[in-house]
Design a binder for these strands. Structure first.
Lengths: 193, 193
DNA sequence: GTAGTAAGTCAACAGGTGATGACAACCCGG
DNA sequence: CCGGGTTGTCATCACCTGTTGACTTACTAC
């Protein structure tokens, strides 16, 4: 069963964007190693060779996915403000406030590929630069790096949990309690050691 | 440079054990997908074909690694007793009490391969049976599953953190404070919602 | 000592991977 | 109408993976 291509309009920018979107989708559901260029190309409705042409290599494509500007903006937005509003936003994200779906996806993309030989150093660098560093800089008091890492561990744990088992909250009341609990967790993580 | 085999003593049990140990070591440092049977065989000083012979397939080998009886015993031992002693043991493990090195490694093996298409369902099942289920059963009060998952998220986050950035504690004093912090985190995770 | 079986070795396979370079179709300025 | 560069297609390469089956070596029972 071979798809008959409806002749793709010749538009390099749109094609690149389609590839990037397809890659994003795949990398959010599998690791760097399990996702193949051919699947991505199929999702994008594009010949696999075009990926190499436009992005160079698979590694470069992954790097491009990691450094999408919107993603960076969103993650940066997570980590500003005082601890209370930050706790609010982290809880929102973890409990899947619709606005934050893409942020969760961004974390997922990174966490999925953290055990890959090729991709792990990119992931580490991105997490460090986008998360650990700004949070550390934001914190007053001693042991800032450690407290930032505690927050990182919290977020990572919750996101992996969600992908393993699905959402925690079943009804609105539970969700409210969980929201409060996660805010407490954030405050505890960031509080003075 | 080809190793000249010092003729391996013909002992099927010892060979199987060597393969299992080598596989354990590799899977603790890479994912199911990045680790190759040839590397494992080389570590064990064994011909790659023997792995298929003794364990059937790579998948079966991974399953064998996951279900090593000592591991199961150790992880089970983590999750018994009241919340205070449990918090103590979790903090010990996360802060690398030497006794718990292998337990940390066991979690690592599972987390490394959680994004693999082939291995993820095995990992999920193992985590559920060895961690979520016993903890849920141990808890009194409502929302037991959710609180157990919160503990799971905590452990997962800390272990991923450790493999990404290394140990949190630099000196004995920091270690003491962190130990107390993690105990608080465990209590908070498990406390009534 | 010799047959028979267990243990280990070797070479090769089929399948899938990312990547390349030659080709075809298209669009646009002249 | 027609060259020239862009955009997309196709076949193929070299490599690596897990797995298999035929072979050799060692050990044990008779």
């Amino acid at each position: 069963m071979v798809a008959i291509y409806p002749p793709r309009p010749r538009n390099a920018e749109a094609t690149k964007a389609a590839i990037l979107a397809a890659a994003r989708g795949r990398f959010a559901r599998g690791s760097y190693d399990t996702v193949g260029l051919r699947e991505i190309a199929a999702d994008a409705g594009v010949d696999p060779a075009l990926i190499s042409r436009y992005f160079g290599s698979k590694e470069d494509l992954f790097a491009a996915v990691l450094s999408r500007p919107e993603k960076i903006a969103r993650i940066n937005a997570l980590f500003v403000g005082d601890i209370d509003t930050l706790a609010e936003r982290v809880a929102d994200m973890i409990l899947d406030e619709p606005d934050d779906e893409t942020t969760v996806e961004d974390f997922l993309i990174m966490l999925n590929s953290i055990a890959s030989t090729t991709a792990s150093h990119m992931v580490r660098a991105t997490i460090f630069e986008r998360c650990d560093r700004p949070v550390t800089a934001m914190l007053e008091g001693g042991h800032a790096e450690i407290r930032a890492r505690l927050l990182g561990a919290l977020i990572v744990g919750h996101i992996m949990n969600k992908t393993m088992w699905g959402d925690l909250a079943e009804d609105a009341d539970t969700r409210r309690r969980l929201h409060a609990r996660i805010r407490e967790q954030v405050r505890l993580s960031l509080s003075e050691l």
